[in-house]
Design a protein around this nucleic acid. Structure first.
Length: 113
DNA sequence: CATCTGACGACCG
DNA sequence: GCGGTCGCCAGAT
């Protein structure tokens, strides 16, 4: 898979900070494709120096199966991230992924669900 | 080529 | 606040 850009972005996450699948997806030009990012995470080879535990779900909530959830929370706490009752304060620990191709224009789409 | 599934996200009741 | 549904993208069958 060509998830290199995803992994690379994740590696850039500063210690003590976290980001969400949605943010990553947006940064990778995959709006709504947060699932794809999640899929990439699932396929993320551990032991490659990829801080996968710094990637969380929207709202600062951990969207991970139990096995990894515990470890992830522990790792985050170790890095100084406060998991306030399981939810992380994105306003303080949320990290904005820098895009590789900054696009000044911000397209706004109307959703008529 | 048709369908299902999944470490997601937003909306609705 | 919780659970269910729909929409999104990519990979597997």
């Amino acid at each position: 898979m060509s998830w290199d850009p995803v992994y690379r972005l994740i590696k850039k996450i500063p210690r003590g900070r976290v980001t969400t699948y949605g943010e990553l997806a947006k940064a990778l030009r995959l709006p709504g494709g947060a699932r794809a990012v999640g899929y990439a995470m699932a396929a993320t080879p551990k032991g490659r120096g990829i801080p996968w535990h710094r990637v969380i779900g929207a709202g600062g909530r951990v969207r991970v199966p139990e096995p990894h959830a515990s470890m992830q929370r522990r790792l985050l706490e170790t890095e100084g991230v406060e998991l306030d009752g399981g939810a992380i304060d994105m306003q303080r620990f949320g990290w904005s992924p820098a895009r590789k191709k900054p696009r000044a224009q911000k397209r706004k789409r109307a959703r008529s669900r």
